[in-house]
Simulated assay, not measured.
Amino acid sequence: MNDPIYTFLLTVNDETTRVTVRPADTLLYVLREKLGLTGSKPGCLNGDCGACTVLVDGVPMKSCLMLAIEAEQKKITTIEGLQDTPIQRAFVEQFAFQCGYCTSGFIMNCHALVQTKPNATEAEIKKWLESNICRCTGYEEISEAVHSVLGNLERDT
């Protein structure tokens, strides 16, 4: 039995492309395998690690949990769509990565944080960072990168 095929327009990084997918294709699969955007990483493939995080209409979403067909008429932003943003520079300046596998997911999540909560408290930053997992480094440098972008040097405890 053949799977049904769906064709629709997908807007990724401000470019609209016609894609053909199976109903079960995840957004992560389509981004990587059909569009060649490999910045979103397959980690756990069950929504725990956050390595596949993208922005869907500005909101962080784990692309391994989202079906591609759910992205129709939505604006998707991947790490490739960010161009020298303050959070990207801060990650480099604060050494907020080691092996780098999880970095794109963290950057996408942190970019959304600084865009939506420019006065984020320490507790809010910690809560947002809980949605991504890094096995190589502590979260201190990542938190410092967020603080440097927010200009939030005074931390609430």
Rank of each mutant, 00 (worst) to 15 (best):
L45M: 08
L67P: 01
Q115T: 13
K74G: 00
I133N: 02
G43M: 10
M108Q: 01
Y101N: 06
G47D: 06
I107S: 00
P118G: 02
V92K: 04
T116C: 07
L65W: 08
R135E: 15
L67R: 12
G105Q: 04
C102A: 05
R89Q: 14
T77Q: 08
C134M: 11
T78V: 04
D14A: 07
V54A: 02
F91Y: 11
A51W: 11
A71N: 02
Q73D: 12
M66Q: 10
I107R: 07
A24T: 13
V19G: 03
E130G: 10
C64Q: 02
T26W: 02
R18M: 13
E80C: 04
Q115F: 03
E140G: 02
W128I: 11
T85V: 11
V59C: 05
T121L: 05
W128N: 06
P86L: 15
P42D: 13
E130C: 09
F106M: 04
C99L: 02
Y101G: 07
P23Q: 09
P86D: 04
F97W: 15
E122C: 01
I76V: 12
A51P: 00
L10E: 09
T17M: 11
C110I: 06
L45P: 00
L10F: 08
A112Y: 12
A120Y: 04
R32P: 01
C64N: 05
E80Y: 07
D84G: 08
